[in-house]
């Protein structure tokens, strides 16, 4: 039983076809990983689900069609979104960044402060002056403040130091105990650790869906679909083709 079902998702931006028909099922529990090489359309797919880019196709969330809803109403259905570039408001303070995300009458600040004690200490600091890892914490914290039914995190560990990657992974694993997570990730070690189900995109289409660990254990399939052995590529990730 999947919580989010995407069928034949297509995106055209400025005359460029970016997605040619993506199918995606996000499991109702645990972490679903969205994988693929750079430029395969992972970020565009999650943006299209969020309604941040013009899209066609069907997107069903918990039985209702959200494929035509504007972004803010998609979010209000209970989807928390931590975008690829973290989407932190650099000139606002940490507290203001969090306050902006409040939707529930009683936002879960206890949880956020327990997971990220640093954010509480730095609440008055402009978010733009935070380190990359701290900014990512702000982005994830914003999704945890409300009682979301799905969290979408787009490359939350990109560009982070290994120690911080572990920290973020811990938080995602902990969050996934109570709320399903759709995780776009290049770090396959992390995927192996947290993900159950996975989908692989190639050239704007779904190339594979199935069990994440099974895929990563199959060296041939992993190399064919992801272009790598089952470890993170050495070169730093280039930005994807889609617009910000």
């Amino acid at each position: 039983m999947s919580l989010l079902t995407v069928r034949d998702l297509r995106v055209v931006i400025d005359g460029l076809h970016i997605l040619h028909g993506v199918d995606l099922d996000v499991a109702a529990t645990g972490v679903t990983a969205l994988l693929g090489r750079n430029g395969a359309g992972k970020t565009t797919t999650v943006k299209a689900v969020m309604g941040l880019v013009p899209r066609t196709g069907t997107v069903t969330f918990d039985g209702t069609d959200i494929g035509r809803l504007p972004t803010h109403r998609v979010v209000r259905r209970g989807i928390g979104y931590a975008p690829e570039d973290r989407g932190v408001f650099a000139h606002l303070s940490v507290a203001e960044n969090l306050r902006l995300a409040e939707r529930d009458p009683h936002p879960a600040y206890d949880l956020v402060h327990e997971l990220f004690p640093e954010l509480e200490r730095r609440r008055g600091q402009p978010a733009g002056t935070l380190s990359g890892g701290q900014q990512q914490m702000v982005a994830i914290a914003r999704t945890l403040l409300n009682g979301n039914r799905l969290i979408i995190a787009d490359e939350p560990t990109k560009g982070l130091a290994p120690k911080i990657v572990t920290e973020v992974a811990d938080v995602l694993a902990r969050a996934a105990e109570t709320v399903p997570v759709l995780l776009v990730e290049q770090n396959l070690a992390l995927v192996r650790r947290v993900a159950g189900h996975c989908a692989v995109l190639a050239d704007g289409r779904t190339a594979h869906q199935g069990d994440a660990r099974a895929l990563l254990a199959d060296e041939d399939a992993a190399r064919r679909l992801l272009g790598v052995g089952a470890h993170r590529p050495a070169a730093p990730a280039a930005p994807e083709g889609g617009p910000r």
Binding site: L52, P54, T56, L69, P70, T71
Partner: peptide, 9 residues
């Protein structure tokens, strides 16, 4: 309209 257009973007 061919596609649903995002209002924020």
């Amino acid at each position: 309209p061919v596609t649903a257009v995002p209002e924020g973007a």
